[in-house]
């Protein structure tokens, strides 16, 4: 999450918000609502669910603001809450066969390797491509998905990611590796030339 270059830090805003300063609380929400919503969408792949997860996230934040220790960044903390709310929303989701993720040979194979006909630059005008991306990532188990999104998409460090998903560094690396290969293979089914 990018911090604004405002002089007032998140920590100062939190301290003010705890004292009941609504202006400070509003400022925190304005700083992070877009990132929280976008990240929630990336996990849920559904705008209504993302909005719901965003609301729940800020409600939780307000409730437990006093417990925010300042040990980690506010953004790290928010990512954690979003991720947990999205996990709860996904509970009823249908199960996929994840054995392919455990099997190295299934993930990296040299069959059907060619470049793709789509270019990431063309994404915004292509709903069909967006659907393909949604469907592929929906098949990943929650923790693989969140690790991929935090590390590769949001650009967080391995250490920060490990704090958020509560997994060891080697576990993060292994999930990231498998998630990338899995998504690449899923997309390859429709995108290969």
């Amino acid at each position: 999450m990018t911090n604004t270059s405002n002089k007032i830090t998140d920590e100062q805003l939190i301290a003010e918000a705890i004292k009941g300063n609504k202006k400070a609380l509003t400022e925190i929400v304005l700083r992070y609502e877009q990132t929280v919503y976008n990240f929630a969408f990336k996990i849920c792949r559904d705008k209504d669910k993302a909005e719901h997860a965003m609301q729940e996230t800020f409600l939780s934040m307000v409730k437990s603001l006093k417990q925010f220790s300042g040990k980690s960044k506010l953004s790290t903390w928010l990512y954690t809450i979003v991720s947990n709310h999205c996990l709860m929303l996904a509970r009823s989701k249908k199960k996929y066969d994840y054995t392919v993720l455990e099997n190295e040979d299934g993930l990296v194979n040299d069959k059907f390797i060619s470049d793709w006909k789509f270019n990431p630059e063309k994404l915004s005008e292509n709903q069909e491509l967006k659907d393909i991306l949604d469907n592929a990532i929906e098949k990943l188990p929650h923790d693989y998905k969140v690790v991929f999104l935090l590390r590769d998409v949001e650009g967080l460090s391995t250490k920060e990611t490990s704090e958020i998903v509560n997994l060891s560094i080697p576990a993060i690396k292994s999930r990231l590796h498998r998630a990338r290969a899995f998504l690449r293979n899923e997309l390859n089914k429709t995108l290969h030339v």
């Binding site: 877009q34 993302a50 390797i113 990431p120 915004s124 590769d152 998409v153 690449r184 997309l187």
Partner: peptide, 18 residues
């Protein structure tokens, strides 16, 4: 290598606005 890179790029570029 290119397609792994594209995979990441696709998901990076797919954003929604509140």
């Amino acid at each position: 290598f290119n397609t792994i890179n594209s995979t990441v790029e696709f998901y990076k570029k797919y954003n929604v606005k509140l």
